[in-house]
């Protein structure tokens, strides 16, 4: 088994495309048949993951988690507690790994950085006018630069759906490219907000556009809509990433977020990932799950697998 190459932020291949390619990239994106895609996703979702492979998946799910809080009511106190949970998801069980990162608003990045210093847990910040991405461009880019300067390791920005859905692909591409440059040296995740794109064709096109503009990860959703990640939309993005990687040699990671609350869902996404992008993507370097309440459900499932008893929520800490 070869070592998975880490994704270098804005790595090779990024410069291969410019804004003038944007319309062509969108136009030549392969069509997606919704019925066939949904059938495939449903059939993969029915894979039966048992025992060792389930424990392995649950462990990986934790390691791939971006433990997230994106509320207007977030405070330093809330973030301190969440960071503790991120490092030691189960304080009484040292075999449980830390999560990959915490994900929060820029204001709280310094708090998280202070709490997580030396733990290996990364700090991701949303930026660029999250969640709509419709503020003035210079303000959005300044926000990206500021969180990078603060020391955030990863930045989650949003695709400008207003431009994209209006067919202004070059402009949407340029905005992403500008954000890519502003986020120099850190991992850039581009949120497509699949729930607003209206079709899988659009999801696939947006994936291609974001990857060509230099996204290190493409991410399903902001978590602010009632429709977050779904198995078919994630599969659609994974297929786009697989083909992009084959064509350009540049691996792009996948982040699923929005409405993932149960272990079973997390395992289903891992199955999709495994069967579409293969084992090289089964790592926090290339796969993330943005979630908050998922973590405790995974912990409960791990204990269930180990003890054979279904667990109750009173035995897991809420932070």
């Amino acid at each position: 088994m070869s070592q998975t190459a880490e994704i270098q932020p804005g790595g090779v291949g990024t410069q291969a495309f410019g804004p003038r390619d944007a319309a062509r990239l969108v136009a030549r994106t392969t069509a997606v048949d919704a019925v066939g895609l949904e059938e495939r996703a449903a059939s993969l979702g029915k894979r039966s993951i048992k025992r060792e492979s389930k424990l392995w998946a649950l462990d990986l799910a934790i390691r791939c988690t971006d433990l997230t809080t994106l509320e207007g009511a977030d405070t330093a106190g809330k973030v301190v507690a969440m960071c503790a949970k991120a490092v030691r998801p189960n304080p009484i069980d040292p075999s449980i790994p830390s999560v990959a990162a915490v994900c929060l608003y820029p204001e709280l990045v310094p708090v998280a950085l202070g709490q997580l210093k030396g733990t290996g847990v990364r700090v991701a910040s949303v930026a660029g006018g999250f969640p709509s991405g419709l503020g003035p461009l210079d303000a959005r880019l300044r926000e990206v630069r500021e969180v990078v300067e603060m020391g955030a390791h990863e930045v989650d920005i949003v695709l400008n759906r207003s431009l994209f859905l209006a067919g202004r692909y070059a402009q949407a591409f340029e905005e992403l490219r500008a954000a890519r440059e502003a986020a120099e040296g850190v991992h850039l995740k581009v949120i497509l907000e699949v729930g607003e794109l209206g079709s899988y064709d659009r999801v696939r096109q947006a994936s291609v556009l974001a990857m060509a503009a230099g996204a290190d990860f493409i991410k399903t959703s902001t978590g602010k809509l009632s429709t977050g990640a779904t198995l078919p939309s994630a599969l659609c993005m994974m297929e786009a990433a697989r083909d992009f990687s084959r064509e350009t040699g540049r691996p792009v990671g996948i982040k699923v977020a929005g409405g993932i609350r149960r272990s079973k869902q997390a395992v289903q996404y891992l199955v999709l990932l495994y069967e579409t992008l293969g084992p090289e993507w089964m790592t926090p370097e290339r796969f993330r799950i943005g979630a908050s309440s998922l973590l405790n459900d995974v912990l409960m499932q791990i204990d269930k697998e180990r003890t054979g008893r279904y667990q109750g929520p009173d035995y897991f800490t809420i932070d």
């Binding site: 088994m1 070592q3 998975t4 894979r47 039966s48 993951i49 048992k50 025992r51 060792e52 492979s53 389930k54 392995w56 998946a57 462990d59 990986l60 390691r63 891992l270 495994y274 084992p279 089964m282 790592t283």
Partner: peptide, 10 residues
Amino acid sequence: RRGPWAYSSA
């Protein structure tokens, strides 16, 4: 924790 995922028999 880097090995390829193997589905246990089901």
